[in-house]
Amino acid sequence: MAAINFPFGASATRRAPDADELANGFGCGPADKELFDWLSWWFSGQIDGVIEGAGLTTDDADLQQLLKAIQRLARGMAAVYATPGTFNWVCPAGVSRVSVEGWAGSGGGGGSGTSASSAGSAGGGPGYFKGWYDVTPGVTYTVTIGAGGAGGVGGASPTSGAAGGTTSFSSFATATGGGAGIAGNGSIQLTQAAGGTASGGLINHPGRTGGLAVAISTTILHAVGGGGFASSNNFVQATGGSNNGLAGGIFGGGNGGVLGGNGGAGWPGFLSLEY
């Protein structure tokens, strides 16, 4: 039953307390060792179950192991995915329900032309979901993390940015990436990048649209990237000359480039899984 070895509970013969002992206490006699061995066996099984339930391997020499197991179970287990790509999560034994939240990748800002007043629009913010899902131990579930969109290239023939990639947890929930910022050439780009969307979560939150540049006299304020749920604000940029847009802040789209500058890259997707 248990892998813990109590030196005083090693006899082959053990018995549970009878009804009279449970009601009236234990007398003295040769049966005491059998009863004590049963209690040792029972307690060792309970302790070993807690340790293994926390994902640890029982070690008789580690006197802190039960404490470690309780601390680990109290704070829960988690898997975090912050790198774009596709991954496999295998549901551990004893786990039947998980909490998952995910952000898609944010859009990259548009590049800008070199002529006067050229400014690209900013990338859109990512879709976000959070939900609780029933899972089966031993089954493999696919996790996909969307990349942040690349910023557009500035110059005589500027290019638009790229949209952010999709983040998903198996077939349960999906968040789409923020839209691409559009290049501006000869004027301020007035087309805003769309925010991403989400589905399948108990909470589904869309990303914000990307911002537009503003001209104030000879100064141009860069288009600021759209944010997602719980995102940090992108920095506002002001310039009187060529300047690259800043990359998106946490879960934010990239700023647009100005007067020949490149657009900023969008923030990549993210997913956390707790059980």
Results as ranks from 00 to 15, higher is better:
2 A>P: 07
3 A>R: 09
5 N>M: 10
6 F>W: 12
8 F>V: 12
9 G>T: 08
9 G>C: 03
10 A>Y: 15
11 S>D: 13
15 R>Y: 11
20 D>S: 13
33 K>W: 10
35 L>A: 01
36 F>S: 07
40 S>E: 01
42 W>L: 07
43 F>P: 08
45 G>Y: 01
46 Q>H: 11
50 V>F: 13
52 E>P: 06
52 E>A: 15
53 G>R: 13
54 A>V: 11
59 D>H: 06
61 A>F: 03
62 D>P: 02
70 I>P: 00
70 I>E: 14
71 Q>E: 11
72 R>A: 00
72 R>S: 02
81 Y>H: 09
82 A>H: 13
86 T>W: 07
86 T>D: 15
92 P>G: 01
93 A>V: 06
94 G>S: 02
94 G>N: 11
102 G>F: 14
108 G>I: 00
111 G>L: 14
113 G>V: 10
114 T>Q: 03
116 A>H: 03
116 A>S: 12
117 S>D: 14
117 S>R: 12
117 S>N: 08
123 G>H: 02
129 F>Q: 00
132 W>L: 13
132 W>T: 15
134 D>T: 08
135 V>N: 06
135 V>F: 08
141 Y>T: 09
142 T>E: 08
149 G>D: 04
150 A>E: 01
160 S>C: 06
160 S>I: 01
163 A>P: 05
163 A>V: 05
166 T>W: 11
168 S>F: 03
172 F>Y: 13
179 G>R: 03
184 G>T: 03
190 L>H: 12
192 Q>G: 02
193 A>L: 09
195 G>E: 01
195 G>N: 04
198 A>S: 14
198 A>C: 04
199 S>W: 08
200 G>V: 03
200 G>W: 06
203 I>T: 15
204 N>R: 04
207 G>R: 13
211 G>W: 02
214 V>E: 11
220 I>G: 09
222 H>Q: 00
223 A>F: 01
224 V>P: 02
236 V>Y: 10
240 G>P: 08
243 N>R: 12
246 L>T: 10
247 A>G: 08
249 G>S: 03
249 G>M: 15
251 F>Q: 10
256 G>Q: 00
256 G>N: 02
256 G>R: 05
258 V>T: 07
259 L>D: 08
261 G>K: 01
263 G>H: 02
263 G>I: 01
266 G>N: 08
272 S>E: 15
